Computed example of a mutant assay.
Amino acid sequence: MRATRAGAEGPFLDLSPSLQRTGRACAWIEEGGQVLMAGRDGGGWTLPGGGIHPGESDAEAALREAWEECGAHAEVTGEPLTLRGASGVDALCFPLRLTRPLDPSPEGRPVAWLSSRALPCADDVQLRQVLAARGETPAFLARPALVEQALAEAARLGVEDSSSLEAGRLRCTLAASRPGGRLLELGTGLGVGTAWLLSGMDRAARLTTAELDPVRAQAAWQLLRPDHRAEVVHGDGRDLLPRGPFDLIVVDGVLIRCDVSALDQLVSALRPGGQLVVDDLTPPAHLSQEFFKGDALRQALFAHPELSCTEIGLSPHERVVLATRRA
């Protein structure tokens, strides 16, 4: 990484404060495998970009933002890609080429050239989308083939955000830590998260996954039936708890929140040293008002006498609780 200008972390000047901007555009400027990025107000790096002014084309907005945030004089060299931001807002990302050396950032931002194909920068939410669209994802960041199949089926059925990349990697890693283990998943969905678990499991491990919705259970079964390690059950996953003890149980936080009293059943179905993953939890900063006096699920997990818990932030909008049953 080579920095072109140092500066204090934000707030920075805002040269485009209009509240009438619509849509978003950003710029991809690459030289020698390094991508030009601007400092965020809260720290870290982002592709230069922002809202589109009324009467301004998408491409003009990308060029303007590249200048305001990075001091880049540039020209558009191709068609844009649509990127999904961490907040879920789409942005049109235009490839640009510098026409002259960089000036200091007019907004006073630090500017850096980051390696787009080496960690940690290659795993940036924006960079990895561009590389994926170009078919240039580094092998060490590629999703497992079964996960890609599950995502393709979810897209065909019009289901988005079946399982985040970060949550999937955690599942894969935990499954790999249980050689020959018995795993249970409550809430199969379309099998995206299940595919991540299978991608981490060894050949001797076994996974049972349950889904209440018949359509989703059938779709997951069609996807997973070639893998002898997986059993897809249509029904309430709590009915499978007597089959324990399990080495790893993964449960959707939405499911258990509806019946926090089921936590004792889950813990009893865990082998001592076994782990419970409660995912799809909302970060405290984004909780709705009903939780301002406390979250019964988090409270029950951390107060349970047989569990040792930690909460893990996977993204700005997603957390999980990872719990281990005490021996």
Rank of each mutant, 00 (worst) to 15 (best):
P242L: 01
D295Y: 06
P316D: 01
R229T: 14
S308L: 11
S308R: 08
A303M: 14
V233F: 04
L276Q: 09
R257N: 15
I256Q: 13
D252E: 14
L241Q: 09
L314Q: 11
A230L: 14
P226F: 14
A300Q: 09
D264L: 04
D247P: 08
L270D: 12
V321F: 11
F292L: 09
G244A: 10
F292I: 08
E318A: 01
L263D: 13
E318H: 02
R238N: 04
G253C: 14
H286T: 01
K293N: 12
V250W: 01
V267Q: 03
T282E: 01
L270E: 11
P226I: 15
Q275G: 14
E290H: 02
H234Y: 12
A303D: 14
D264P: 09
L266K: 05
K293E: 15
L281M: 13
Q275H: 09
G294F: 12
E311W: 00
L248T: 08
L270A: 11
V321L: 07
Q289D: 12
D252Y: 13
A300D: 07
H317N: 02
V251K: 03
G274L: 10
G273F: 11
R257M: 11
A269N: 06
V232T: 08
V267D: 02
V254T: 12
D295K: 07
V278C: 05
R243H: 04
V251L: 10
H304I: 04
A262S: 15
A230Q: 12
P245K: 01
S288C: 09
